[in-house]
Structures are given as C-alpha cells and as structure tokens.
Simulated scan of single mutants.
Amino acid sequence: MTIGGEAIQHQRHQLRLLRRAVALLLCMAIVIAALGVTAIRRDAEALLHQDVLSELLLWGAVLVVVVVALVGTYSVMADFLFWEGWLNGLPNPAHLFAAPTADDRGHRHYLVYLDGIHQSEECHPPRVSEFLETLEEAIEADALLVKGIEAYTIMPVGLRATAYARWFWERLFALQEHHPNGFVRFLSAFCVQANNVIKVGISSDRRYGPVMNYELALKIARRLEAIGFHPSRAARVVLVGYSGGGEMAIGTAAMLQKLCHVPVQVITVCGVFSGNGDLSSVDHVAMVVGSRDPVAALGRLAYPGRLPLLPLSNWNRWQRTRSLHRISIEGMNHNGASGPFSVAYRAKVVREIVRELELTSA
C-alpha cells in the first residue's frame, strides 16, 4: 500500500515518539515491579500474618496489573515493530509458491490446527497431542494435518525462540516450570496467558486486527510452502481453531485465502471469537460446541457482533448469505475431563470434524 511521503514521514515520527514513551514506561514498570517483589520476599513472614494478609493480596494485585501492562505493551509493539521492518520486515508475499516443489504425497487438503490460549510453545500438551493423533488417523490419505503453529506469535518460531525477546521468555518459562514458589509459577504462567488473550483481543479489533491477522496468515502460508503446499495441486486449506484459536482462524481466513489462492474454510472447536473478521470470501464455517461449555457461551456475549441485535455486523451479514454449520455435542465442556481433548469426547469431536470435511469436500 502506497501513501504520500509527508503522511508516512509523519506516521513514522509519531511511531518513534510512541516507542520512546513506551520504552520509558516499561523501564519504570520493571523497576517498580522488581522493588515490589524484593519487598515481598524480604518481609514474607511478616506479611503472612492474618492482620496484614490484605496487604499481601494488594501487592499481588498490583504486580499482576503491572505484568499485564508489560505483556500487553509487548504484544502490541511487537506486531508493529515487525510491520515497520524492525524485525527483518515482512516477507514479500509475491515470492510465495513461486514454483511447484516435488511432492510425491499428493496432498490436496491441508488442515491447520490453531491451539487455544493455553499454548506456550510450538509443541502441544499431551492431551492435545493425543487428540491431533486421533484426527490425523481419521482424515483421508490425501489430507495433511499441520501441527505446531503458534498462533499467538508473529515470528515463524514460538515465544521461547524469538530472537528479540528470547531472554525474557526463556526466563519466564524457567520460572513457570522450576521455581519452588507456587505464586511465582502462577504469575509466570499468567504472563503467557495474558500475551495470548491480548493477541485474541487484537485480532478481534477492527483497527489493529487486520495487521496482526495478515502477519499470522503470512506465517501460516510460509509454513505450508515449506511442507510442499502449492496452489496448483491443493484443493483447500482448513483452519481448525480451538477456543481462542477460533478467533485467530476466523480473523485470518480471508487473508490466507488470498495468499494461498485456494478456498479456505474454518472449523472452530469450543470457539471463542468475535466474528469481526472479513468473511465475505469464505464459504464454509462450522462450529463444534459443547452443551455445557460456559466459556464459548460467554464469548458470544462478550462479542455483541455475533448477536442478532446487530444485523449489520460482519458475522450476521455473512450468515445471511452463507450456511453456518453448528454441531452441538451433548455434555461436553470447554476443557478438562469433559472437554474436547478428553477420552470421553475426543472421538466424537474428531468424528464431527471429519464429517464436516466430507460434506464440504471439493
């Protein structure tokens, strides 16, 4: 996209000022947080007395607020630093799929799994891995399941391997996994969750969402290219998004379709999404939901654009011209022992996904 020279210079000047202000605020927040943690550790025994327990809770709340502010600022600024070219810039999409590669497997359908906000690295937790193995065995031979894409980072690697913030995330993961204090482990895990939740929020935002969704679409397209995908052979790409991954899938679908030059469809599993994304060129969206899933139900209320009260929202306009497949599984919850990855419901969810693939097969 080309804009006037004066306008772009003004925008860059404003962005530089914003970066400096954010950097200063980050430094101040880090110092305050460090002092707070030191004070709590030094006076831990005193603070645990009943008469000052409220003070401990107050300090904990303050630290959580500081951490969320830091992680939120990181999430937003990382996207725009990447967009502005500070992190080696955006790859030129014109170079994607320049020439067909040798692929004897003959895959025509590519399923891309996007995990929920619990994802902290490219490898999946054991329950999710078992679910994906079951799905991989159930799909046809000409379909390929693409795993290990971290939907909440813009770089081709996970948080732990990002060159510009590796030291921070490695330290955070080390605290989460090995620190003897349970509160520190909880706070470290909370940071990762906060980053992912904020990314879901950005994706659903009409102003900044298209930037991050395009970056994620380009990341997925590059992964597809690396494993042998080419538009001349492929029939479609299917984005399977669990929980917050449903928002990332719906927000990314139309842009990924333009990059890959094949139809893209979306299947959400217990999806939490806004419906603000541009779905005008996407023909197929299916929702696999649980009858006892309060998180997905709350997500619909949190995003009023999915309610019939706003008939001009992107989601409602799409539904008037397309057919939404809503598949309800009785008794299924959002996660845990009765979630979609549990032994009780794993096979049912896989069966519904495969059935949807067969119904919409080109």
Rank of each mutant, 00 (worst) to 15 (best):
L90H: 02
L90C: 02
P91V: 00
N92V: 00
P93F: 07
A94V: 03
A94K: 05
A94E: 12
A94S: 09
L96P: 12
F97D: 03
A98C: 00
A99P: 04
A99E: 13
P100R: 03
D103H: 14
D104R: 05
D104V: 11
D104G: 10
R105I: 03
H107T: 00
L111I: 00
V112M: 13
Y113C: 10
Y113M: 10
L114C: 13
G116C: 09
G116H: 15
I117S: 11
Q119E: 14
E122L: 04
E122C: 06
E122A: 05
E122K: 02
E122W: 00
C123P: 07
H124W: 13
P125L: 12
P126A: 10
V128Y: 12
V128H: 11
E130I: 08
L132G: 13
L132M: 14
T134E: 15
T134K: 11
L135K: 00
L135Y: 04
L135G: 00
E136D: 15
E136F: 09
E136C: 12
E136W: 08
E137W: 09
E137G: 08
I139Y: 15
I139S: 15
E140P: 11
E140G: 14
A141H: 01
D142S: 06
D142G: 07
D142I: 05
L144K: 12
L144P: 08
L144W: 15
L145N: 15
L145Q: 14
K147C: 13
K147V: 10
I149M: 13
E150S: 12
A151I: 03
A151K: 07
M155W: 10
M155S: 15
G158R: 06
G158K: 07
L159T: 00
R160F: 10
T162M: 11
Y164M: 12
A165C: 07
W167V: 07
W167S: 11
W169L: 09
E170S: 09
R171Q: 08
L172C: 15
A174G: 09
A174I: 04
A174P: 07
L175M: 03
L175G: 02
Q176S: 03
Q176K: 03
Q176C: 01
E177W: 02
E177K: 02
E177Y: 04
H179T: 04
H179K: 07
G182W: 11
F183M: 06
F186Q: 09
F186G: 06
S188R: 00
F190G: 01
F190Y: 12
V192Y: 08
V192S: 11
Q193D: 09
Q193A: 04
A194D: 07
A194H: 07
N196W: 05
V197Q: 03
V197W: 01
K199R: 15
V200N: 14
G201Y: 01
S203Q: 04
S204I: 01
S204F: 02
Y208R: 02
M212L: 05
N213V: 04
N213W: 05
Y214L: 10
L216H: 08
A217E: 04
A217M: 08
A217T: 01
L218G: 11
K219C: 11
I220T: 03
I220V: 12
R222L: 14
R223A: 04
L224S: 09
I227C: 12
F229V: 04
H230W: 02
H230S: 07
S232F: 14
S232T: 09
